[in-house]
Computed example of a mutant assay.
Amino acid sequence: MSFVAPEQADGSLVLALHSSSAVLGVGLAQGQVGQNQVGETIAVSRLSRAFPLDRALSNHLFTAVEEVCPADQWPRITRLAVAIGPGGFTGTRLTVVMARTLAQQLGVPLDGVCSGLLIARRLQIQEPTWLVQELPRRGVVAGCYGPDVSAWGGVIELEAARLYGSGLDLPPGPQLPAQPELPGDVDQLLDMACLAAAEGRPGPWQPVLPIYPTSPVHPTSSVAQQ
């Protein structure tokens, strides 16, 4: 879904955060969010960056976000979006906590989106497809996604991501690697947030929680929400 600059703009900002992999993605859209004459979501301008921080995320998260959206501009944020995983325990949790805190303090909507949905949307899958991520010595995390023109963002989660023993344990169907790509996936997240704003979708911050391949409390469980 492309973005086209309209003639008039306001100063509102939409901020998107994605840290479900070793790379942090930060996206920012500015201006009047709406739809153009062919139904595409529009915003005046957008910027997305990828930061390969890996384990240094906890020390550099705020610095990276401020490179895209300085803190003195945060009061202009009118909507936030965050990838909720599946992903690493620390990385996913940090951006979700930051997004929840900003949404609460600013009193703005927050969209939490599964990283698998973002990958499926980027890949433009045309049939129900399993997105599979291998976990060393643990098995695979896999979820099934398919196109649905009536769904938010045009993609629907048919089977929630969970832990399987191996790819052989999955139900029949096409399989693709669940490999995040940044900043491409944060662009998808930003698109969905702008579409949600254009549609006036509610976005309470309270239900937005990270999901992990395995629970830190019950290591043998499937994908758990903490």
Rank of each mutant, 00 (worst) to 15 (best):
T129C: 05
T92E: 07
E157P: 03
V140S: 02
L110Q: 00
E40D: 14
A99E: 08
G167S: 15
L131Q: 04
P213T: 08
V108L: 11
D169E: 14
D10G: 09
H218W: 07
G165Y: 04
A22K: 13
Q105T: 13
A5E: 07
E40V: 04
V113M: 03
V108R: 01
L117K: 12
G31H: 07
T90D: 03
A197Q: 13
S221W: 04
F62G: 09
L170H: 11
G11F: 15
L57P: 12
Q37L: 12
G34R: 13
T90R: 03
P204E: 02
M1Y: 02
P75L: 00
Y145R: 02
A196D: 13
S48I: 01
G154H: 06
W130I: 03
P216N: 02
H60R: 14
L24K: 08
S48N: 11
Q32G: 09
P109R: 00
S221Y: 08
G85N: 04
L47C: 04
S45D: 14
L131W: 12
A5F: 11
P177D: 09
D185L: 08
A29E: 15
G34H: 07
V4L: 09
V26A: 11
P86D: 03
C69F: 10
P216W: 13
P207D: 07
Q30R: 15
V155A: 02
I211F: 09
P216M: 10
S221H: 06
G165F: 06
M192N: 06
H218E: 09
L15I: 06
M1R: 12
L163Q: 07
M1A: 13
P52G: 04
V65I: 13
E7L: 09
L17S: 12
E159S: 14
G153T: 10
A43M: 08
L47N: 08
F51G: 01
T41H: 05
Q35F: 15
G173H: 00
P86V: 10
H218V: 08
V96P: 02
A5D: 02
V14S: 14
W74R: 04
R137V: 03
N36S: 06
R122C: 08
A64I: 06
C69S: 00
P183A: 14
L190N: 10
M1T: 09
I42S: 04
D191L: 11
P210Q: 13
G143M: 02
S45F: 08
A22F: 05
R138M: 05
W205K: 06
G88E: 12
Q8E: 15
S45V: 09
P177Q: 06
W74Q: 00
G39W: 14
Q124L: 13
V26S: 03
L163A: 13
L209D: 12
V65Y: 00
P204T: 08
R122E: 10
L163M: 05
L189F: 08
I211Q: 15
G27F: 12
V82C: 01
S20C: 15
S45W: 12
R121A: 12
L182H: 13
F51W: 00
